[in-house]
């Protein structure tokens, strides 16, 4: 007589008991059909175990991919905004100080934020805080500027 599926599952999980397990083992040694059924049960169990473990390891790369995509999107958007910000700062510095001063503030490889900081300080010193504040407002007006993704997530 072949053992039932539930009995094979219990044997597979080592929950069938000692005497029962011995009987099943002697049967399995003689019956190829039951060996195949046991093999299928073990494979299914392993797959289930693997699936159960999967969310913990798969979600992280998924979230990282989503964040990377958001960052890339924002960088693309900020890249255009940074370019516009540079143009506006260059114009402000050129208007209020002159082209050499604008070139000195811009410098090679200086990020837009640093350029803004330098220009802002100079305008505040030479024009006074009220005028500098007004120019700061002007330079950001209508600009599509976003914080980096990491800053948003913090």
């Amino acid at each position: 007589m072949h053992p039932r599926i539930a009995t094979l599952i219990a044997f597979c999980d080592a929950e069938a008991g000692a005497s029962r397990s011995r009987r099943i083992a002697s049967h399995l040694a003689k019956c190829e059909k039951c060996r195949n059924r046991l093999g299928r049960i073990e494979r299914e169990r392993d797959e289930l175990s693997a699936r159960a473990a999967a969310p913990a390891s798969d979600v992280r790369p998924g979230l990282a991919a989503v964040l990377a995509a958001i960052t890339a999107w924002q960088e693309g958007r900020n890249g255009a905004a940074a370019s516009e910000l540079r143009a506006r700062l260059r114009w402000q510095m050129g208007t209020y100080f002159g082209s050499p001063a604008a070139l000195a503030v811009e410098g090679p490889g200086i990020p837009a934020e640093e350029m803004f900081g330098k220009a802002s300080e100079m305008l505040e010193v030479f024009l006074g805080p009220e005028a500098a504040e007004a120019l700061r407002d002007d330079v950001f007006r209508g600009l599509d500027w976003a914080e980096p993704a990491g800053e948003i997530c913090r």
Partner: peptide, 22 residues
Amino acid sequence: AAQRRAIKPASDGSEDLATGVP
């Protein structure tokens, strides 16, 4: 004159600062 020009709203003049250049 420089200070007043900075404080004056951009919309008042012919220069549109929102577009970056006059």
